Simulated assay, not measured.
Amino acid sequence: MFYKAKELFRDKIDISLYAPLSKRLEVDMMYAINEKEKMILLYGEAGNGKSFLMNKVYTSLKEKNIDSDLYFIYNPIEEEDALSELLLLDSERHRVVFIDEAQTLSLERIETLRMFADNKNYTIILATHEKKAKEIFAKKHFSSRINYILNTTPCKYDEMVFFISSKLTHNGFEEIDRMFRKSTYKFIYKFTNGNLREINQLVYRTFDIINYFYKRYPAKVHKNRIDNKYIEMANIFIKEIHA
């Protein structure tokens, strides 16, 4: 049971597991794209859900079959040639270009993208870490030409509860969901401070540890609650890996 449930929290982009913590950001991005705004900046600390949001909006637009050509650049360094070819295409159709990991781009390259957005029928969306965003904001000729600025922030406690619970209940793990008590959620929030990536990692590792004990010492695993000691063990394990 825990072995299968942990896969819901594996650190990967899977929009079928998307939990819309901030519907406002999704609505704002969709609105800006529909209005054919030139440049949109999505920024925030690593792990706050930028890639999830970009992929969700991109997929939603593809399903709606809008009158725009859609492109997604997942890694602009590895896909440098594809990005260059895309910008050289000549067409009257509106193009929406999603660029993840934009912190890997130089400011000169971002300026080139801005010029294309200004002079052609493009909407360019950059998702970047907060540090890179501050570099961009420091350049007045950038910031004054960015039409939309969207900031992802750590989720609040209630949002974290929704994030975890909805993943479990929507995928048939109601029994495990009922094992989460208020103290369980408080422990998780204490260790992650609302960072989505860290929440996923901690819950994934917690389920992995519980599964280990359940297989070997089933009598020691509570049937109606998750013991906080497993969360503590998972947190120690993660910190040792990242040390």
Rank of each mutant, 00 (worst) to 15 (best):
R178T: 14
M179L: 14
M179N: 11
M179W: 10
F180K: 10
F180A: 09
R181H: 13
K182M: 09
S183D: 09
S183K: 09
S183Q: 03
S183I: 09
T184D: 10
T184C: 14
T184G: 05
Y185F: 15
K186H: 02
K186V: 00
K186S: 04
K186F: 01
K186E: 13
F187N: 14
I188S: 10
I188G: 10
I188L: 15
Y189D: 08
Y189S: 14
Y189H: 13
K190F: 15
K190W: 11
K190R: 14
K190N: 12
F191H: 15
F191K: 15
F191I: 04
T192S: 11
T192W: 06
N193L: 09
N193Y: 12
N193I: 03
N193G: 10
N195D: 08
N195M: 04
N195A: 06
N195I: 15
L196A: 10
L196D: 02
L196V: 10
R197G: 01
R197I: 05
R197T: 03
R197S: 11
E198A: 03
E198G: 02
I199W: 08
N200H: 04
N200P: 04
Q201H: 00
Q201F: 00
Q201L: 15
Q201P: 00
L202H: 07
L202P: 04
L202I: 08
L202W: 06
V203R: 07
V203Q: 05
Y204S: 02
Y204Q: 08
R205M: 13
R205W: 01
R205P: 01
T206C: 07
T206Q: 09
T206F: 12
T206W: 11
F207D: 03
F207T: 06
D208G: 03
D208R: 12
D208L: 13
D208P: 00
I209V: 12
I209N: 07
I209C: 04
I209W: 04
I209S: 01
I209L: 15
I210H: 06
I210V: 13
N211R: 06
Y212Q: 10
Y212T: 14
